[in-house]
């Protein structure tokens, strides 16, 4: 048993290092040029956003339309800190503070609104993110209002992106494999039964909200640090919908599904840049087609895992042996 565990762990570490090294190589050799790098950053940020929203909506079953609101809090907090302390320490402090501030707002908003269910919760979270946006527009002296913040120092590069993306995925995956994560999933399955089995449903709904907001804050911070320009309108209702689309497309309740969908949509959208007139039509068409043929999302609630590849490998090896 110990041997198997170690083998799995080694494989996981090798896979993670490999993913890092390959992209690093492509960046160093300029195959991923400056233009494609923007796509890479978008993919990474969208992965963090989608995986964290999946924790709230896909695993805990709380329909949220306010994820862009949490993202904007992280973006503004990090921007304001790095503009005053333009060092790598300032950047890291900015990301951390951005995440903490977003989590704090997540807590304050979650406590009263999570009594609501389904559509009502969606409307409440939508209202919340609109309030955050309006606050940023009107806090002229700090946020420069609707014009937004300019010249935010850039610290985000591939190594940092990788650390935050891998960190988010690992932490949320670990959480879901624990009793606390199972409590969240139980709420999605049947709230009354979960409560009767000793699960404090309010606590775990708020917890999912806080962790989701924390990660969205990180994503926002990375966004502001890479694209060095933010304004409140970037984090409106449409941004929340964009994230929700990734989650639903990948599969509610599948982390690897969210990752896959984030990559796929970014690649599709980048590829279609060459046909600007019909780009959004094609994009929407692809969404419609996928939803017709895979209404449960690309992966449903299944996960792609390394042990799955191992099993497939064994199956193939077995097949060869027979022949």
């Amino acid at each position: 048993m110990r041997g198997i565990l170690n083998k799995q762990l080694t494989q996981r570490i090798i896979f993670m290092l490999l993913a890092y090294a390959i992209v690093q190589l492509l960046v160093s050799t300029n195959i991923i040029n400056a233009y494609l790098q923007a796509t890479l950053v978008t993919i990474c940020i969208n992965i963090i956003l989608a995986v964290s929203l999946n924790l709230i909506t896909g695993f805990t079953g709380q329909f949220s339309l306010g994820h862009a609101g949490f993202m904007s809090i992280g973006a503004y907090t990090c921007a304001l800190i790095t503009m005053r302390v333009p060092t790598i320490a300032g950047f890291l402090a900015g990301v951390l503070m951005g995440a903490v501030m977003a989590a704090l707002v997540g807590f304050l908003v979650g406590l009263p609104t999570l009594r609501l269910r389904g559509d009502y919760l969606a409307i409440a979270t939508l209202g919340m993110s609109e309030i955050i946006r309006i606050v940023f527009i009107n806090l002229d002296s700090i946020t420069n209002g609707a014009a937004g913040l300019n010249d935010i120092p850039r610290f985000v590069n591939w190594p940092w992106l990788y650390v935050f993306v891998a960190g988010t995925i690992l932490l949320i995956r670990n959480l879901l494999k624990s009793s606390h994560g199972r409590a969240c999933i139980a709420i999605r399955e049947d709230e009354i039964a979960a409560e009767a089995m000793g699960i404090n449903t309010t606590k775990y709904k708020v917890l999912a909200f806080i962790i989701g907001a924390f990660c969205a804050g990180i994503a926002g911070a990375l966004y502001s640090s890479y694209f060095y320009y933010i304004k409140p309108d970037l984090f409106g209702f449409l941004k929340s919908v964009d994230i929700l689309v990734i989650v639903v497309l990948g599969g509610l309740g599948s982390i690897s599904g969210s990752v896959l969908a984030a990559v796929l949509l970014a690649v599709v959208s980048t590829y279609f840049q060459s046909f600007p007139e019909i780009r959004m039509i094609l994009y929407a068409l692809i969404l419609v087609i996928i939803m017709i043929f895979r209404p449960q999302g690309l992966l449903g609630s299944k996960e792609i895992s390394i042990s799955m590849f191992n099993r497939m490998g064994k199956l193939f090896a077995f097949g060869k042996g027979e022949k």
């Binding site: 009793s179 606390h180 199972r182 409590a183 999933i185 139980a186 979960a194 089995m197 000793g198 699960i199």
Partner: peptide
């Protein structure tokens, strides 16, 4: 397993 949550 979920029902064993209270002892965690």
């Amino acid at each position: 397993r979920i029902a064993m949550h209270k002892n965690v």
